[in-house]
Design a protein around this nucleic acid. Structure first.
Lengths: 216, 216
DNA sequence: AAAATTACTAAACAGTGTTCATAAAAACGA
DNA sequence: TCGTTTTTATGAACACTGTTTAGTAATTTT
């Protein structure tokens, strides 16, 4: 009896069409200007049909948000080919900002907008797995840095929050246009220097650290 | 001829009533749920009347945003009684987070929301004076730290962006609920440690810095 | 008192997310 | 194949939103 399976396939097909249309509109016009009726028109269904596949608009954007985290994790993972964990961590910083600059709307949805968070709250279940994947990659790199002596030993959570908050602060300041007092062309260089700066905190005393030895 | 002056007074009176009503609704219900009709009802005028005093909704919130920066600057200024610029800078960090925690909605409007920025973009004129006041206070403190040897000499813009981005990253992560993986009660302590961490970057080599001498 | 100016608003416009009764289509049992 | 049940899809409506405009009411000036 393949009828049930086919129906499920069709249902998934429409679901993907909705997500595809919504993503396209979202990346082109932003969240507010992506309307249910607009999505419906794109997939040639009525607006009401969307509600057979998603509870509300927030749930659609929670799904897009998750997709964004997949791309984000893929991007961050590019750093994994680097052997030295300290250099790898530094590279992750660059990749983080690259993602934010190249996929502004995605970054905004993933780290700033309220919509996906409200979708989670509605369900009650905190499935933050998407973000956790990247979060754990960062933590693992930090741990490796400390274990191999590239970084002075300190509380893991403190180190993680410090690094990720600096990254997010720069990215969201930029995306939400709060650094208008700076020439937008030099911002990337300021950000790079800021990252170098913060990496410096985590080293041991400069003259004795494994990092310093590695520099020669 | 006092009639013109009286009219101007009345116009300003209504303007303030609008801002007061809008602020109250905004702090209670948030941006989206603060409607023009809601504001109008509160001040017992029609919604259309508001448009005789403000170009649009964004312009109202640009004004509230400016008010928020006044409060913010007042808060940050509490640090000025501290003589030692390094300790003062550290205190500014605490005050920054205090503001963000105590006035979430204000912080969100000032540093995250799009509305006030769009109001600015519409006018064309970048009157960022409100934020600049606080920005310059931070810069002045950093400069003083460097001049008096509490902080190693480095590019001012890099130091400013590093510090403010870390602060904003923590505050906005918290306010936009992106640190749900942590116990919300321990977050303030993590943030404090993160601030201590970053301050460490800016010191000279620990054993020779003026800061270290000041610690004894 | 009449004219001109200013202040104000009801109503309309064009949208929004969401719901629901109803209609169309598909699946099923006989 | 026919009728019945179940699934799927939608038009229309609801209750909103920000904003504009035409027309009214109040005030000031002449």
């Amino acid at each position: 009896m393949g009828v049930l399976e086919r129906k499920e396939r069709e249902k998934l097909e429409i679901r993907n069409q909705i997500l595809e249309a919504a993503t396209e509109l979202f990346l082109k016009e932003g969240f507010d200007k992506t309307s249910m009726r607009g999505i419906a028109e794109k997939i040639e269904y009525s607006a009401a049909t969307i509600y057979l596949h998603f509870k509300d608009k927030n749930e659609i954007f929670k799904a897009i948000h998750d997709k964004g985290f997949e791309i984000f994790f893929g991007k961050l993972s590019e750093s994994q080919k680097i052997e030295n964990p300290y250099m790898r961590l530094r590279r992750m910083g660059d990749l983080y900002l690259e993602f934010a600059f190249e996929h502004r709307e995605f970054y905004d949805l993933m780290f700033v907008m309220r919509a996906p968070v409200e979708a989670r709250n509605a369900d009650g279940n905190i499935d933050w797995i998407c973000g956790m994947q990247s979060f754990k990659l960062l933590q693992a790199t930090i741990i490796e840095c400390m274990e191999k002596g590239y970084m002075r030993k300190m509380d893991l959570d403190v180190a993680t929050v410090t690094i990720s908050s600096l990254m997010h602060g720069m990215a969201s300041f930029y995306i939400r246009e709060r650094l208008v007092m700076y020439d937008q062309n030099v911002l990337p260089y300021l950000f790079k220097d800021a990252m170098d700066n913060i990496m410096y905190v985590f080293k041991e005393s400069p003259m004795t650290s494994a990092f310093a030895e590695n520099q020669n």
